[in-house]
Each structure stands twice: as C-alpha cells, then as structure tokens.
Design a protein around this nucleic acid. Structure first.
Ligand SMILES: [Mn+2]
Ligand SMILES: [Mn+2]
Ligand SMILES: [Zn+2]
Ligand SMILES: [Zn+2]
Lengths: 135, 135
DNA sequence: TTGTTTATGCAACAGAGTTGCAAATGTAAG
DNA sequence: CTTACATTTGCAACTCTGTTGCATAAACAA
C-alpha cells in the first residue's frame, strides 16, 4: 500500500512531511533515530519530525525502541497495530559495529517465570552483537 | 563488606561522595536514576555523581540499565564484575506503576536463535508490568 | 473557492550528559 | 604530623534530546 493511503486510513491528514517520513521508514525495516532521519528529510523542521513520529506511534503506524546506547528509534509496525494498541511485541537486534537496529519479527519471544507478586504485561528484548553485514 | 573497602579494592580513592553513593545503592538492590540519587546525596554536585557512576561502572561496582522510559539507571553488581568486564547479564523488571526497576538475578536468561550471519554477544531484557508492591 | 480544522515552523525552554579548568581532598612518604 | 603529588570535586559552559506556545501555512470538506 502507498504511504498516503496508510496515513489516511489511520485518520491523519496526508501531508508532504508525513508521507516523506513513512516513505523513508518503509523499505529496509530498520529502526531509525531522529539523527538518521533528519538529513534524509530535507528541509523539514526537527520539531515537526518529533510530532510526526509521536502521532505515527499513537495511531499504530510505527513503534518506538530505545537502543543499547539509549538512543530512541522508530520502525514500521507490521502487525496491524491500531490507535493506542501495539501488537508487535518482537525482539530487536542492535549491531555494536554499525549501530543498525533490526526488527526481528519472525523470532519467538520466550515468556519468563516471574517471582510471586510480579505481573508482566510485556517485555522488551534487545540482542546485541554483530549483524550480518558487519560479521 | 563495607563501601570504603569495596571502593579501595577496585583501585579507586575512598572519598566521602563515593562512599555515600555506594551506601545508597547497597540495601534494596534496585536500579536508581540520577534524579532519584541526587536528592539522597545532599550537597554533592550532579557532575560529580555522573563521574562517580561512570567510574563505578568501569571498575565493575555497578551496571547501567536503560528503563522502558529511556531513563538511565544504575544498580550494584553482584557477580564479581571487574574492570571493563561485567558478568551480570540478567533480566530486569520495570514496574509501570511505581517505576521501580528490579534486578532479577535469579531468573534464567533464554538464548535466542538468530538468523544466519547475526552473532550475539549479549542481550538485555526488560520485563514490564506491576511489581509485588503495586500488584 | 471558501471557511474551518489541523499541521508546520520558529522561538524559547527544560533535562540529560560531557568537557576544561582551578581549587579541594586523599594518600603515601618523610 | 607534615609535606608533596595525584586524583577528585565543583563550577561554568556547552551539546544533544525533547517539549510547549503561538502565529502562519497547508489540508480538506462543503
Ligand atoms: Mn521493531
Ligand atoms: Mn541489574
Ligand atoms: Zn552491523
Ligand atoms: Zn511497582
């Protein structure tokens, strides 16, 4: 599906900035940071980018991940996420050489047996090491 | 063991600020943020706290974890970590109500089968939900 | 095309973290 | 117990990340 249609389907106005952001996130499926996105967007204001990404996250177009260096990254949702409800509880791989963060959508997430009293609602796992490009 | 001795054993000078920081991290075993530590330390400068925690991490006295909100936290090492080599690859539990972060030292860490080409050197898992105090 | 709603850009701000440097403190030796 | 050296501390200044208010520009439905 094209970016404009996806944005409209989520109830957001179709603007050039929003289409551009979604177009950039589409191809590789990597989780990108603000620092990486800004130069790819040309003359779009950085505050606008913050707002676009936050809006996209709210409506379930992208999800946010914090990498092993504490950098916030955004990647496309691929699991029919909706407003305020994300279904993409998947693993992430963070390369310690090139710093790319990959969404590992096809790997199983193992549930953990917690001590009495603790109740999990989700979990976030980042595996780090060398990616296929750097290994 | 007392804080001053642990600091000396790691090859660091024993200062009042360092002893105070280690004394605060000792009892509960929680991972604390700068924001939580600063008011507990009295008149110690926030830059000094940054340097103390970084030094402690380098020599294996504490480890750093980034919580689900992106806040950096520090907790005591309990696995004989040494300078530039941490052995405490354990799970963390982050309460979504009280925001406490617990080191789950006794839970097993499940290894993940990665796609060809990817090589893991470690992994960081944060389980979130309600802790025993908030449940 | 017009009018209303929403998004954008800019300025200003707050929080987290780093670096350089002078003054204070810790430590080991005399 | 003093002294001398090495290290740590506090402060100022700075960068980077993220947020908010407000006037203008763009989207879109009528
Ligand atoms: Mn992902
Ligand atoms: Mn821990
Ligand atoms: Zn790589
Ligand atoms: Zn709690």
């Amino acid at each position: 599906m094209n970016a404009a249609q996806e944005i409209k389907d989520k109830g957001l106005k179709v603007t050039t900035a929003r289409v551009k952001v979604l177009d950039i996130l589409q191809p590789d499926g990597l989780a990108l940071s603000h620092m990486e996105l800004e130069p790819m967007l040309g003359k779009i204001d950085r505050i606008t980018l913050y707002r676009i990404l936050n809006d996209f996250e709210e409506v379930g177009l992208v999800h946010k991940v914090i990498d092993i260096d504490g950098v916030t990254r955004f990647a496309l949702c691929k699991h029919n996420c909706t407003t305020h409800h994300h279904n993409d509880n998947h693993l992430h791989f963070n390369c310690t050489a090139c710093h790319k963060m990959y969404c590992m959508d096809n790997l199983p997430v193992t549930a953990v047996n917690l001590p009495k009293g603790f109740k999990a609602t989700g979990q976030s796992t980042i595996i780090y090491g060398l990616c296929s490009g750097c290994n």
